[in-house]
Amino acid sequence: MGAYFQNIKDGFTTAFEGMSISFATMFVRKETVQYPEVDISSNATIAEKYKGSLMGMPENYRGILDVDLSLCTACQICQKACPIDCIVIDNIKCDKTKLSDGDGSPVLNRFTQKEALKTRTVTRFDINAAKCMYCGLCEKACPTSAIRHTNQFEMNRESQEELILRFVSDDVKATAEKRASEIEAEAAAKKAAKAKKAQEEKAKEKGAEE
C-alpha cells in the first residue's frame, strides 16, 4: 500500500519537476541558426545576427578543396595520399623554376624546409568533389600547401559531372604542352648540338692524332 501512494507522489513530483524545466527552456536563448540569413563563415560574422551560443566555422574548416596551381609542383603526393582516389593528376616536364609567394619570398618545402622547386607542370588536376570525403589527408601531405580546404561548403550542381573540379583549363593545358614540346625540342636540339659537337671534337682529335 505504501508503494501505491509512493507511486502517485513520485509521479506527480517528477512530472512537476520536468514541466518546470521544459517551461524554463521557453525563456532561454534559442540555438537555431537561421542559416541563409546568418553568415556562419566565422565566429565574428555569426555574432552579427545570431543570439545563440553556437560557434561559426573555424579557420581550419575542411570544406571543398582548392588548389593553388602556382604552388603546385605536380609531385602527386596528394594523389597517393588520397584513400579514395578522388584526385587525378597528369603532368609533363617543364621549366625548372623556384616557387615564390606573391611578395617574392621563396616557398619552403613543408617537410624538408628547403626551397621548393618546380620541374614539372600539371596538365590535368581533377578533384571529384562528389567522391571526396573531406578527410584532409591530401592537405596534410602536400609539401608546398598548394592543395588546401576552403571554408566553402555549398556545392549544388546540376549533374555529377559538374562536381568534378577541373583546376587546369584547356588553354593552360595547351600552353603547357606547347611549352613542354618547345622545351623538349630545345633539349633535343641541345642534345643534338652536343652530340654533333662531341662528334666534331672526336673527329678533330682523330685528325690531330693523324
Binding site: N7, D10, G11, T14, A15, E17, G18, I21, S22
Partner: peptide, 8 residues
Amino acid sequence: RLISYNQI
C-alpha cells in the same frame, strides 16, 4: 531531472 528521474 527532466527525464531520467521521471517516474513514468
